[in-house]
């Protein structure tokens, strides 16, 4: 048998791109899927919280949040996901064991961390080495599990989440009106800001929501198996404003 080549299928791969709902005028909501993400859960080992935070700060230049917020950028982000628990998100389709630390090291984050108002603004970093395309024989996702085990494994349990969660970015003038139809938390700027995270549910589907910027752009992270049910809700809820899936 020929050499096996596996290509990943993203959670929303089956959804046609383009406009749905009301089609007059510009779309009220713009959605895009983030693919090629690798994820891992980080849980501080007993009594190691402080050491874990110190080490993450030292190695990645990021302060692990102790309340529902996130730090990092599109390449690597740590999202609070419970007491002493975080979700690490890293972009994929890069080599098997990448030197993440070099790519997103202290220097890259130095200014990022101090600029309080911009704590979470995305900074597109140019990867220092070529990325491999989807489906290339040795392709795959960033082995974030191994990476984190090596860097902080002494202080934390690292659990691979692979790409088991679907990730959608939502923006547009009616993003609040749409989310209000399912999300039971307050997104008003006085209550939820760029850098904030909430774990809750939309239409009975567990989600993590984080605010990316003040335009506002949000990212919704949910169980991959529920992506079609979520999509059904999103299409129904954004219909009156028009949805563009890019």
């Amino acid at each position: 048998m020929a050499e096996i080549v596996l290509s990943p299928t993203s959670a929303f791969a089956g959804i046609p791109r383009g406009r749905s709902g009301q089609t007059d005028g510009p779309p009220g909501v713009i959605a895009s899927e983030r693919t090629d993400l690798a994820m891992a859960t980080i849980i501080a080992r007993k009594g190691q919280s402080a050491a874990l935070r110190d080490t993450v700060r030292e190695i990645y230049g990021l302060k692990l949040p102790i309340r529902p917020t996130w730090v990092g950028n599109d390449e690597l982000a740590f999202l609070w996901s419970g007491p002493d628990q975080w979700l690490a998100l890293a972009t994929g389709t890069i080599g098997p064991l990448s030197p993440l630390r070099e790519r997103v090291g202290v220097r890259a984050f130095a200014s990022f961390e101090d600029a309080a108002s911009e704590t979470t603004a995305s900074k597109a970093l140019t990867p220092p080495f070529p990325t491999r395309g989807r489906g290339s024989p040795a392709g795959g996702f960033v082995d974030i599990e191994t990476e984190l085990r090596e860097s902080i494994g002494a202080f934390a349990a690292i659990s691979a989440q692979g790409d088991g969660r679907a990730v959608l970015r939502l923006s547009g003038p009616n993003v609040h009106d749409t989310l209000a139809k399912g999300l039971p938390i307050d997104l008003h700027e006085s209550a939820f800001k760029p850098g904030d995270v909430a774990i809750t549910q939309i239409a009975h589907i567990g989600v993590t929501i984080r605010q990316i910027d003040s335009s506002p752009t949000y990212e919704i992270i949910l169980a991959r198996s529920l992506s079609l049910s979520f999509w059904s809700w999103l299409v129904a809820s954004s219909g009156e404003f028009g949805l563009d899936f890019t």
Binding site: S159, D163, R224
Partner: peptide, 13 residues
């Protein structure tokens, strides 16, 4: 008092 960490990975695999 136990040093144990639990997390669901149902969706990962």
């Amino acid at each position: 008092e136990l040093d144990v960490a639990l997390v669901s990975v149902t969706e990962a695999w």
